[in-house]
């Protein structure tokens, strides 16, 4: 063995401190999903349910959109925690894809099915700021908790981990948003739900990869 490598090993192994092993990722994902659900429930309670919730609850596309958004959040959290570990399969990145497709389909189908009633509805400007604040208030604390948890693994695949975490945050926040706000114009529905989610993903995913601690 060459001298510098010997020296390095001596340096790394001298006065070695014990380390706390990471809890298996699926346990951590379950904890984070529970925390996110609790937080979003509180957010919805503070903001109040949308006024037409009684009608919406009978609409399959609405239920699909909310359920799929939440499921996208859960599966993206699981995938991000798995991918953050060195030896886990790259195929974990596809875990949130089915739920994400269902989420996009639910929001899009809702717009299409109610095209006529949406066109006759009231102007949307009055609620747009509240919508955005709900999304931001939902996203930032979730992002901080998730990044803190992911950072403990010092992921080697930092970009993939950050992008999945960004998808999780955007999906959870949109689930709360769908329950709180009535957004009445088709384009605006897409913009508020999927557009803001896309912006969140791009911003959080782009910045997040740099923010996560680097190993080595």
């Amino acid at each position: 063995m060459s001298q510098p490598t010997d020296d390095l090993i001596a340096r790394l192994t001298g006065n070695l401190a014990p380390v706390k092993r990471l809890t298996p990722p699926l346990w951590r994902a379950a904890g984070l999903a529970a925390l996110a659900t609790l937080f979003l429930t509180l957010l919805v309670a503070v903001r109040g349910l949308r006024p037409d919730i009684a009608i919406k609850i009978a609409d399959p596309s609405f239920l699909t959109a909310v359920g799929a958004a939440w499921l996208t959040g859960v599966t993206a959290t699981m995938a991000a925690l798995e991918i953050s570990l060195p030896d886990r399969s790259q195929t974990w990145i596809w875990l949130p894809a089915p739920a994400a497709l269902l989420w996009v389909w639910g929001v899009g189908w809702g717009c299409l099915a109610h095209w006529v009633t949406i066109l006759e509805a009231r102007p949307v400007e009055e609620s747009s700021v509240r919508c955005l604040t709900t999304l931001v208030a939902g996203s930032i604390p979730l992002a901080l908790v998730l990044w803190k948890s992911l950072g403990r693994a010092k992921p080697l695949r930092r970009s993939a981990t950050a992008w999945l975490a960004a998808v999780a945050v955007a999906a959870f926040a949109d689930a709360a948003h769908l329950l709180c706000h009535v957004v009445e114009a088709t384009v605006f529905v897409l913009l508020m739900n999927l557009g803001v989610a896309a912006v969140s993903i791009i911003v959080l995913g782009g910045i997040g990869g740099r923010v996560l601690p680097r190993a080595g």
Binding site: L8, R21, L22, R152, G216
Partner: peptide
């Protein structure tokens, strides 16, 4: 080796 040292807590026995 440096990376291994840095992420040694991620090894699952």
């Amino acid at each position: 080796l440096l990376t291994l040292h840095d992420v040694r807590h991620t090894f699952d026995p």
